[in-house]
């Protein structure tokens, strides 16, 4: 039977009445939430591909213009790593709306009344975020290779790891926002849009910032996403320098802040 194919945390006694406060361990809780969140995607893998539509449009229609303006200097090697960051950004920024949907239907309330710790409710969800975005990033790379994109293999792997870590953090922030605004959908989207686009433009993801005004470059210098973009560009082109450390630090920082804020929000839920 195809039951519960992947989950395997600690086995527990069935006696509820005298059992411990939490029937599963902390990591067991994280694992169960992770598996539950991942399952719809495993059952319906085609859904991941839809998320690729937007980044592909950018590669197909934005990059040729950029390439033309820069006299061919900014080609796939420059643009694709940026689009990969865009994939992780957009995939995880919207994920809070899934939680809002669960708040509307009652599925979220259900998880609050079962004996799961609060923190794993968020951590499991956030960890799941890295799966679709990693798959999407791999597919995007595979699509662009025939058109001349030549990623460095080791760099690409490191780059994907950094992206995944960043995705966990940004996903956690998206969930935090959903928990903070509760059932007010419009508020979620308003804040999300207000944050997402400045963050994206100020990361140099789509256009280089070195010709921008001073204030923009200053803002970019404090945008962690910019460091992730720089690291991705270096890594996918086989350059291993200080940008790797900066990008990794930025991604880990976002993940830590996201998980901290998110678990706090979930505890208050």
């Amino acid at each position: 039977m195809s039951t519960a194919s992947t989950d395997a945390p600690a086995q527990r006694a069935e006696t509820e009445s005298e059992g411990p406060t939490y029937p599963n361990g902390f990591l067991g809780d994280v694992w169960l939430v992770f598996v539950r969140e991942l399952r719809p995607m495993l059952r319906d893998p085609a859904s991941i591909v839809f998320g690729l539509l937007q980044p592909l449009v950018f590669v197909a229609m934005f990059m040729p213009l950029l390439s033309g303006f820069s006299d061919g200097e900014l080609g796939l090697h420059w643009f694709v790593p940026g689009v990969l960051v865009m994939v992780s950004l957009f995939a995880t920024a919207t994920t809070g709306s899934n939680l809002q949907f669960d708040m509307h239907t009652g599925a979220h309330e259900r998880t609050l009344v079962v004996p799961l710790r609060r923190a794993p409710l968020l951590i499991g969800r956030a960890l799941k975020e890295m799966t679709p975005l990693t798959i999407q990033a791999c597919v995007l790379v595979a699509i662009t290779v025939p058109f001349g994109f030549r990623p460095d293999p080791l760099g690409a792997i490191l780059g994907l790891v950094i992206l995944a870590v960043f995705g966990v953090g940004f996903g956690a922030l998206s969930y935090s926002l959903a928990l903070a605004v509760r059932s007010q959908d419009w508020m979620f989207w308003m804040v999300q849009q207000a944050v997402l686009f400045p963050l994206m433009i100020l990361s140099g993801m789509l256009l280089p910032l070195d010709r921008g005004p001073e204030w923009m470059r200053w803002l970019a210098s404090v945008n962690p996403l910019g460091y992730v973009v720089k690291a991705e560009r270096a890594l996918f082109n086989g350059v291993f320098d200080v940008t790797l450390a900066q990008g990794a630090a930025a991604a880990v920082g976002v993940a830590l802040v996201g998980l901290f804020v998110g678990t706090g929000a979930m505890r208050r839920a």
């Binding site: 039951t3 519960a4 989950d7 395997a8 945390p9 086995q11 527990r12 006694a13 069935e14 509820e16 059992g19 029937p23 599963n24 169960l32 598996v35 539950r36 259900r110 998880t111 079962v114 004996p115 799961l116």
Partner: peptide, 13 residues
């Protein structure tokens, strides 16, 4: 099934 796991039931149970 997942609900049962949340309450600590082993997978088969």
């Amino acid at each position: 099934v997942m609900q049962g796991r949340f309450y600590g039931l082993p997978r088969a149970r």
